[in-house]
Design a binder for these strands. Structure first.
Length: 502
RNA sequence: GCGCCUCUAGCUCAACGGCAGAGUACCGGACUUUUAAUCCGAGGGGUCUGGGUUCGAAUCCCAGGGGGCGCACCA
């Protein structure tokens, strides 16, 4: 930053000459004995006044970033921020053996500096838990000013590009990432408790499979071979189950080469799990239990505010039949309208969503129709079951009605946060259904799945019946924290190149 | 990719065709319990970029760049 400035202009926070630097010699480490939150708690518990606290001589050392700094003659108050939160620190001149040392701290410390304070805990007359410093050390200086101390950082662009400032200046932002971490830990614990093991599968894949999406492609030089960044770990996790790891999960990034908006990122975090001998009904029960459990533990409530609406995840999740809902919203009965041509005709007949005419296949047209007409109306958590069989080539058909899948999604706020189904484990049918995908691709649908011979072969060696589930972590975190865009729950979201950046 | 809105001091915002300002931060000073401390003083600007209209442009017009929202694609 400072090197972009003309040489004549002094950086706003720089003291004249190098006086500020010379006055403090930052050490390489500081022996911290207490966090801000623990200091507050401990000060309030003891309830000592300042003089009494100094008498007891129970010293603690705290380090953090200076967020506020008020100098008033012989007394000085500041606020330090560490990972646990903030606490007030106070320096009283009379506590310092060397008044000059007090003066240097009082005058020399700037907002944004890191400070280590050693002293005693007490409570001020106004009831504020405070660390009374008997000694303080500047641990490093800030050479650039922090964002405005009350308004924070509101420029959306800057909040994403300089997330470190957003985290410092906006407590809400900081809180969202603490919740994100706690939710993920909670999910791992829940799965570990149920004897799932965590595995990692390739992100570089020869065939991008497991979802209908456009992949990123890349190239391996030594092998001179193109790869795709995975769009889903699904077929690898099923191979792991075939190998006897019959309850597995993976929590990791998937990549989809598509547009960005408030509910989509090009790299997003998804949980996928596979449980042998379960079917989709088992997963409907399990995922609800997981979400209610983890939200309750982390937030202390299962009620979440969605656009001003109080939504309770612990309430009943209604179950809607996919085709029934589509029929209710469009008047089109998908069990009768079963070809692209017929569906296009039905859509244009009713004058709904006519711009969908471009859709290259029955499956994609059905999917678009649903997303346009039904999905936006689903706000409170609900299950959507029995999608038409054409939609997912990896899912098992329903025994009673083979035109639909043993499949469900959980939709909240018009966002799909969970997709799961009983897995197709019959290699003959699997091969046939993937070949159909290949045919559709050749006919111009570029979001079909690719053939994966190695996956078929794994299935030919035998796979237990199983059901897998995918849960969009970013979306769950956004719902849990009231974020209206996924970019608010990802630390460093991908943005366009900043102007002038190299 | 298309449409609408937006870009002024490090940060948060005024000025909306007539001298570019405030708060905060930074610098100097006062102050013995502050809580966004308060008070006094100083410095800080190609108004995103490039064209145009005008006696005069931060302001109006055109093009470009960044961002937001909507639409489309997707989970």
């Amino acid at each position: 930053m400072s090197d972009h400035r003309p040489p004549t202009e002094t950086a706003p926070t720089e003291t004249p000459a190098a006086e500020g630097q010379a006055a403090f010699a930052p050490p390489g480490r500081y022996d911290v004995t207490i966090t801000a939150a623990a200091a507050r708690e401990s000060a309030l518990a003891a309830g000592a006044q300042h003089d009494a606290a100094v008498e007891t001589d129970e010293r603690v050392r705290l380090a953090g970033r200076v967020m506020l700094w008020r100098h008033m003659g012989k007394r000085l108050f500041g606020q330090l921020l560490d990972r646990s939160g903030t606490v007030q620190v106070a320096l009283f001149r009379d506590d310092f053996a060397d008044p000059e040392e007090y003066r240097r701290l009082a005058k020399g410390v700037r907002l944004g500096d890191f400070l280590g304070v050693e002293g005693v805990l007490f409570v001020t007359d106004k009831g504020e838990p405070t660390l009374g410093g008997l000694d303080a050390t500047v641990l490093n200086r800030a050479h650039e000013p922090l964002p405005d101390k009350h308004a924070g950082l509101v420029d959306t662009d800057l909040r994403y590009r300089k997330r470190y400032l957003d985290l410092l200046a906006n407590p809400d932002s900081r809180q969202r990432f603490l919740v994100r971490s706690a939710l993920i830990s909670g999910i791992r614990r829940w799965l570990d408790d149920r004897e799932f093991i965590e595995v990692e599968t390739p992100m570089l894949q020869a065939a991008a499979s497991g979802a209908a999406a456009t992949p990123f492609s890349t190239h391996h030089d030594a092998l001179d071979r193109d790869f795709y960044l995975r769009i889903s770990p699904e077929t690898y996790l099923k191979r792991a189950v075939a190998g006897g790891l019959d309850r597995v999960y993976e929590l990791g990034r998937n990549f989809r080469n598509e547009g960005i908006d408030s509910s989509h990122l090009q790299e997003f975090t998804m949980l996928e799990w596979y449980a042998a001998y379960w079917d989709y009904r088992d997963n409907m029960v399990a995922v609800r239990e997981l979400i209610v459990d983890v939200l309750g533990t982390v937030l202390g409530t299962t009620v979440v505010d969605i656009d001003g609406q109080q939504v309770d995840f612990a309430a009943q999740w209604p179950e809607y039949d996919y085709r029934t809902l589509v029929a209710e919203h469009t008047g089109i009965d998908l069990s009768e309208v079963r070809t692209v041509e017929a569906l296009k005709a039905a859509i244009s007949e009713r004058g709904i969503a006519e711009d969908l005419a471009e859709a290259p296949s029955y499956a994609s047209l059905v999917d678009l129709l649903y997303k346009r007409t039904v999905r936006p109306s689903l706000v409170a958590p609900c299950y959507l079951v029995h999608h038409p069989a054409e939609l997912v080539p990896l899912a098992r058909r329903n025994d009673d009605d083979p035109t639909v899948l043993d499949m469900f999604q959980v939709v909240v706020n018009g966002w799909e946060i969970v997709k799961a189904y009983s897995e197709l484990v019959d290699p003959v049918e699997q091969e046939e259904r993937l070949l159909e995908q290949v045919r559709l691709r050749e006919a111009g649908d570029d979001e079909t799945m690719m053939m994966e011979d190695d996956f078929i072969e794994a299935m030919r060696h035998g796979m237990p019946p199983m059901s897998g589930l995918g849960l969009g972590i970013d979306r769950l975190v956004a719902l849990a924290t009231g974020a209206t865009t996924l970019r608010d729950v990802v630390l460093f979201p991908q943005l366009r190149q900043a102007p002038g950046a190299s």
